[in-house]
């Protein structure tokens, strides 16, 4: 091994150690817990190995917890509902974020930086606070209801809290910048000559958008969509604060299993299944990114 390759190893070893220590080992811990059984011990699960000195002598793990997840419709429904809410919420983000990103990308250089700053600015406050602010808007005596009743438009307060609408608006408020930034990056790279060429070749502005602008920003759309979709699936704060008891989301279910039921093995298997759900779109993202850069 030459000196050069030694230096290269010195550079890549710290991040590998970091990822191993704080990502890979915890991952295996959770995997191990998900295969074990709950117990009235501390921590509250059985060990899946019996140890003989340094070597495990027998393995007692099983997939019981995963079978349990399938047997109870609560979990299946939580997953499906989470995927649905994340998918729709990300789509709403896309619909709102695309025009914003487009305007920023087409603005002149000075204004562009200001607009980008305005997009990122809400990120400087805690997302918890932003969701609490929505409660202040939506609650029965919150801003919207009190304003509407002050003008005499409504007599009884509207039910805004604990609705799908509240959850979707929570997702939009929390994750919109994550949608706008990759879209902006894709649209900013778009060559203005291509748009002019399309209109010169007979395409109306709408046709130009469908045939040139949209296909050329697809990498930004996929990246932004997944950046919003992935954290939305496991979201806990938004459904916990804005949603009602009947709005099942997997993040909330996970929380209940861990802290209310203290069933760590089931909670871990919930987490493992969620991870599997999210790895698939991540691989998809990687592939489109690779195709985009080629």
């Amino acid at each position: 091994m030459g000196f050069q390759s030694l230096k290269r190893y010195l550079v890549i070893i710290p991040p590998i150690l970091w990822l191993g220590l704080f990502f890979l080992i915890p991952f295996f811990v959770v995997l191990q817990v998900s295969l074990s059984d709950p117990a009235l011990t501390r921590p509250p699960f059985t060990s899946i190995f019996t140890w003989e000195g340094w070597w495990p002598s027998s393995f007692t793990g099983d997939l019981e917890n995963y079978e349990f997840l399938l047997s109870d419709s609560l979990y299946v429904n939580s997953y499906l509902n989470s995927l649905k809410i994340a998918a729709i919420g990300s789509f709403v983000c896309l619909l709102i974020g695309y025009p914003i990103a487009y305007v920023i990308a087409r603005a002149d250089a000075n204004l562009r930086n200001t607009l980008l700053l305005l997009v990122i600015l809400p990120f400087w406050t805690s997302s918890l606070l932003r969701v609490y602010a929505l409660i202040g808007m939506y609650s029965p005596n919150g801003f919207i209801n009190s304003t509407l009743s002050w003008f005499g438009i409504i007599d009884t307060p509207l039910q805004l809290m604990q609705t799908d609408f509240a959850i979707y608006s929570g997702i939009v408020i929390t994750y919109l910048p994550l949608m706008i930034l990759p879209l902006y990056a894709a649209l900013e790279k778009l060559d203005g000559d291509l748009v002019e060429a399309a209109s010169d070749l007979g395409a109306t502005p709408l046709a130009t958008f469908w045939r040139v602008t949209l296909p050329l920003s697809i990498s930004g759309i996929v990246a932004g969509y997944l950046l919003v979709f992935i954290p939305s699936v496991g979201e806990f704060v938004i459904p916990a604060l804005l949603g009602g008891p009947d709005q099942l989301m997997i993040g909330k279910t996970l929380w209940t299993e861990f802290f209310n039921n203290r069933d760590w093995p089931v909670a871990s298997s919930v987490a493992m299944v969620m991870l599997a759900f999210l790895v698939i779109p991540m691989m998809f993202l990687r592939n489109t990114q690779r195709a985009g850069s080629a």
């Binding site: 060559d191 000559d193 291509l194 002019e196 010169d200 070749l201 395409a203 296909p215 050329l216």
Partner: peptide
């Protein structure tokens, strides 16, 4: 008349070929 309705076409200096 907007560009998409004119009986003229332009060849751009950058060629502006659609990369996709």
């Amino acid at each position: 008349v907007p560009p998409w309705k004119r009986p003229v076409n332009m060849m751009f200096q950058s060629y502006a070929l659609f990369p996709h």
